[in-house]
């Protein structure tokens, strides 16, 4: 597909444009979420005064100030660190975030690559970040970092399963693994014959949605599943030795991944960019906006939970994954399958 918004350009140019957009998307998404939820919502929820002050109106300058602060900080690398691995770890984490965006559609034609196994691909690359986390933890030559990384590895692997199982229901219902296909299936679906809002799988796959949200929260290592970074226990886990720009990379990776997972959840369960009855170029124009609104709602849920709950313990987290979420996910698949065959 060499058409990008009706412009006929060479594949090289298209690729470059797409790459730039994706590269811009992660920091932009991180910035938007960081500003909206990490700063504003958090400040309101926690009665914080600091982030509401800089720059005058509603503390608009805070995030920029934070960015400047990170950039001008000294880049410290521990003596015992494995220098190359240490430097590469944040990039690997960021890379996994970038790669998720490749398959997320924002309109009928606004997608970098409409893979047939889009869902599979997205979940697979999202778990690449665990390699980065392990690299960071190992290379830091710090016991806290190592503990954090091992926790992260255990946790991400444990929650990969419920995440997948949650999505399997959607895939069965949509009959395709392509994200674009899933969106279209939701757009063209109907609820008991009424097709006013299509058929977002949020309603039929409510268990799947809940599972996905919980598992995604764990994948994002956000409270109540933030043991790998557990500030009060492991100081900052695998990030403990990172400073300045490298730390910023982790931060962007973390919030950017939240952005990606929110987009994924919006696509899988809330109908993605789709507006029923709207097709073609109009859908291309409105799609991103629709997707963004839905994504922000999902992200709001992520951060709401993050700022409300305490942290689980590692064993409790594993128990939750293996004893509750996975059986629930399997049951959900079974029920979905039965319905799929029956109707």
């Amino acid at each position: 597909m060499t058409h990008l918004l009706a412009l006929d350009v060479g594949w090289g140019t298209t690729l470059a444009i797409k790459t730039i957009i994706i590269l811009a998307l992660v920091p932009a998404g991180a910035l938007i979420l960081g500003y909206t939820f990490l700063l504003k919502m958090m400040s309101h929820m926690q009665s914080r005064l600091g982030p509401m002050d800089p720059g005058g109106f509603h503390g608009w300058f805070q995030l920029i100030g934070d960015g400047i602060k990170f950039i001008q900080k000294e880049d410290v690398m521990p003596d015992g660190a494995d220098k190359r691995v240490f430097a590469m770890a944040p990039v690997v984490i960021l890379m996994s975030t970038f790669l998720i965006f490749v398959v997320i559609p924002a309109g009928p034609r606004i997608v970098v690559k409409n893979l047939d196994v889009g869902v599979f691909y997205a979940l697979a690359v999202s778990s690449l970040s665990v390699i980065g986390v392990l690299m960071a933890g190992w290379a830091s030559s710090n016991k806290f970092a190592l503990l954090g990384a091992l926790r992260a590895a255990a946790q991400l692997i444990a929650y990969e399963l419920p995440l997948l199982l949650a999505v399997v229901g959607v895939v069965i219902q949509a009959g395709t693994m392509s994200l674009q296909g899933i969106v279209v299936a939701q757009q063209n679906g109907s609820i008991f014959g009424w097709s006013g809002i299509g058929n977002p799988y949020f309603f039929t796959q409510i268990i799947g949605f809940a599972l996905f949200m919980v598992a995604a929260q764990a994948e994002l290592t956000q409270t109540p599943f933030d043991m790998p970074v557990a500030e009060s226990e492991l100081v900052a886990g695998y990030m403990v030795e990172y400073t300045g720009f490298r730390f910023l990379f982790f931060y962007i990776g973390e919030v950017g991944t939240a952005f990606a997972f929110a987009a994924l959840a919006a696509t899988l369960f809330l109908g993605g960019w789709a507006i029923p009855g709207v097709h073609g170029a109009v859908a291309d124009l409105l799609g991103p906006i629709v997707l963004f609104v839905k994504l922000m709602f999902v992200a709001f849920l992520f951060f709401w939970v993050r700022f409300t709950y305490p942290r689980l313990r590692e064993d409790q987290l594993q128990a939750l994954a293996w004893k509750v979420l996975i059986p629930l996910g399997l049951a959900n698949i079974l029920i979905t399958g039965i319905f799929k065959v029956a109707f």
Partner: peptide, 16 residues
């Protein structure tokens, strides 16, 4: 105590 158990928000309520 809530902060040490992982919840950030109550700490701010306590301080406030």
């Amino acid at each position: 105590m809530a902060l040490q158990v992982g919840a950030l928000t109550p700490a701010f309520y306590g301080f406030r």
